[in-house]
Design a protein around this nucleic acid. Structure first.
Length: 658
RNA sequence: GCCGCCGUAGCUCAGUGGUAGAGCGCGUCAUUGGUAAUGACGAGGUCGAGAGUUCAAUUCUCUCCGGCGGCACCA
């Protein structure tokens, strides 16, 4: 009997089409292609959206069958893992409420509400239970529930967080539940066919606190993080990568290379050591040269400024909680009585948390004509911010830091040219410093804002054009701009993949108005300039932290604290070594001489472990022939060169990129 | 700031209810060496701070400080 059943037609990624009975699922499609394909399939991608293999296909759609080996299946494995973790935790720790558990980069997490905190000592038992659930091979079954029923079900189980989630889902959305055996969870899906598809390549990594719905006024939940991969090899590689990355931690290398330290009397502020400050100065000088060439004028503004200016700028109201406030009063030095009198609190000053208001003061001196614009004022501006204690992180997040800051005052018509010039300059600097993995975001107008739409149009177009011309890939974030203007943020990654904001370009239509900056236009009337806040490195401290991690301490020669060590094999050649040392030092190469009576093996190891990039080793042979033996960090070879040739080559290599 | 973990010599760490140990580093001596650790000896610690329990606390409890991992924050 020929069925009159309706047929549907679906397209495959290669363009071919297949006809299937209506109601056929992804699995049916896979089976129609081949049994072996069906075996390894875990999901389908329908018109670009991942779906369960068990969902029926729509007529005319394009279907990509996802195999477990495919890259996209990683997110399924991780998401399934989160569910399995939740079931395991509820099995072992009854009374624990589940909340949310998404897949993330490299793994997954699940947030639990429980009176007792979890500890990493619980991991072994939880992982064992997870493996049992995987082995059990329960099917993931998708169900659509009526909203009220779902809310009632979770409330009845004491799962108040889940009930709240459902209550907040839009009416238009189906309430979907995924079952795995006896256990179920509210979930949008999709999932793989069974828990067995998750495999065994997962590991719980850490416990952490996390606020419910990311809101610090709400309950603190316990988050368990895990990592999950397609196979044990991938898992092992990832764990090795993490281990290697941790060796590049700038806090660790900072101590090993004797660059800087922190201590609790000045928590969150850096004590730069000679080695570290050499890097700092080299970097600062490089930026200074770049800025001069780009027609910036360097200034220096006060650290301590009366609160009247902060009130005028608006920071006193909005930013004060992060400011260090200082009474402008001679403190009481008697043993009795308070250090500061009541009156002292009426006369307050603050350490600047940013440089902008001070730069407007410099701009405001005298009368500016449109012919003076753009005015570009740069400062290596030392700022203090009273950051939350939990936010401090080595050089990356400190309480005292120096921005490579500048403010450009220009007309509305100059926004684009200035943005283009800045993006070019930033790209050039990042290239010189060896960065190409930069996350760039363009943040566009929020709902609440100052300035009219025509100005925002001009500003956003200018920034977009600048980014396109600079050739960096970027994403656009609607609504994410500041109320005072759109901005570009440049983020770079540290050794273990955390991103840190470094460069920024922010347009400001507000501050010139608040602080009454103006210029005389061609028409003889006074106009408001547009203000561009911009930094290339962001903070000297943070950027040096990133540099250290990015190079694993093996910095480019021009930034190295010690560029060359001259050392001897035996004391007979001390005089020759000194001669070599003086030649290099006289040429400005940062050189140290090591005449210790140690074996050459010991001295080589010593300097290699301190990451000295180049050693000139001299013995009797070299002294007689006026040569040096060159030993470089990261190589086990040595090269013999005449002193003159070695010197010329080294000197050339020590030159900064600009 | 919130949750959790941690704090022993300059560094990395072991250890114990009866006031401490290793390696590296440091100092002295010997060694005069050919490319990633020469040997011996020695100095060095109020066991983060304060309080409590105890005959006795570095060890157990609490509070504080700091560090680490997250979260929140980073106009």
């Amino acid at each position: 009997m020929i069925s009159e059943e309706k047929q549907i037609i679906v397209s495959l990624p290669d363009g071919s089409k297949r006809e299937l009975p209506a109601g056929s699922t992804g699995m049916d499609l896979a089976e129609s292609i081949s049994k072996s394909l069906a075996k390894v399939s875990v999901a389908i991608e329908v018109d670009g959206h991942l779906r369960d293999l068990s969902r029926p296909l729509d007529d005319g759609c394009t279907v990509n069958i996802i195999k477990r080996d495919d890259d996209v299946s990683l997110e399924l494995i991780r998401h399934d893992c989160a569910h399995i973790l939740a079931e395991a935790v509820q099995t072992l720790f009854p009374g624990t409420q589940v909340t949310i558990g998404p897949n993330i980069e490299n793994g997954f997490f699940y947030d639990f509400a429980r009176n007792e905190p979890f500890s990493t000592e619980d991991f072994e038992a939880i992982e064992k239970e997870m493996r049992r659930i995987v082995e059990r091979g329960s099917q993931f079954v998708r169900e659509v529930w009526p909203r009220d029923e779902a809310i009632a079900y979770f409330k009845d189980k004491g799962e108040n967080y889940k009930a709240e989630l459902i209550e907040d889902l839009p009416e238009s959305e189906d309430i979907t539940i995924y079952r795995q055996g006896e256990w179920l969870d509210l979930c949008r899906g999709p999932h793989m066919p069974t828990t067995k598809n998750v495999g065994t390549a997962f590991k719980l990594m850490k416990v952490a606190g996390a606020y419910w719905r990311g809101d610090s006024s709400k309950a603190m939940l316990t988050r368990i993080y895990g990592t999950a991969w397609r196979n044990d090899k991938e898992l092992k590689e990832y764990l090795n990568m993490i281990e290697e990355a941790e060796k590049r931690d700038h806090r660790k290398l900072g101590a090993e290379m004797d660059l800087f330290h922190f201590q609790q009397e000045a928590q969150g502020s850096v004590f730069w050591h000679p080695n570290g400050f050499t890097i700092y100065n080299q970097l600062e000088n490089y930026i200074r040269r770049r800025l001069r060439a780009a027609d910036y004028k360097e200034i220096k503004t006060p650290q301590l400024i009366d609160n009247k200016l902060w009130e005028a700028s608006g920071h006193w109201g909005k930013y004060r909680e992060n400011m260090f406030v200082v009474p402008d009063e001679v403190p009481n030095t008697e043993d009795d009585g308070p250090v500061i009198s009541d009156k002292g609190f009426d006369k307050l000053m603050a350490l600047k948390p940013m440089n902008c208001p001070a730069h407007v003061q410099v701009f405001n001196q005298g009368i500016k004509s449109y012919r003076d614009l753009p005015v570009r004022l740069a400062e290596f501006g030392c700022c203090h911010r009273n950051e939350a204690h939990g936010a401090l992180h080595g050089l990356m997040r400190v309480r005292q830091f120096t921005q490579d800051d500048a403010h450009i005052f220009c007309t509305e018509d100059q926004i684009t040219q200035e943005a283009v010039a800045f993006c070019d300059l930033l790209k050039q600097v990042y290239t010189d410093l060896g960065f190409n993995d930069v996350v760039v975001a363009l943040s566009l107008r929020p709902d609440v804002r100052v300035g009219d739409d025509a100005l925002w149009d001009k500003a956003e177009d200018g920034l977009r054009k600048a980014l396109v011309e600079s050739g960096l890939e970027f994403r656009e974030d609607p609504n994410e701009g500041a109320f005072y203007g759109p901005k570009i943020d440049y983020q770079v990654r540290d050794a273990i993949g955390r991103t840190w904001q470094c460069g920024t370009l922010q347009l400001d239509f507000n501050l010139p108005d608040r602080l009454d900056a103006s210029y005389v236009g061609e028409d003889g009337a006074r106009h408001r300039p547009v203000m561009l806040h911009r930094a290339i490195l962001g903070s000297m401290e943070r950027f040096i932290g990133i540099l250290i991690e990015s190079y694993g301490g093996k910095l480019p020669l021009w930034l190295c604290p010690v560029q060359c060590v001259v050392t001897t094999i035996n004391p007979d050649v001390d005089d020759y070594a000194k001669e070599v040392y003086q030649k290099l030092t006289a040429a400005g190469i940062r050189t140290e001489i090591d005449l210790r009576h140690e074996k050459i093996n010991y001295k080589v190891r010593d300097h290699m472990t301190s990451k000295v990039p180049v050693m000139f080793v001299v013995g009797r042979r070299e002294a007689e022939e006026n040569k040096v033996a060159i030993r470089r960090l990261g190589s086990n070879d040595q090269k013999f060169e005449t002193l003159d040739n070695a010197f010329d080559a080294l000197l050339a290599e020590c030159q900064p990129p600009f």
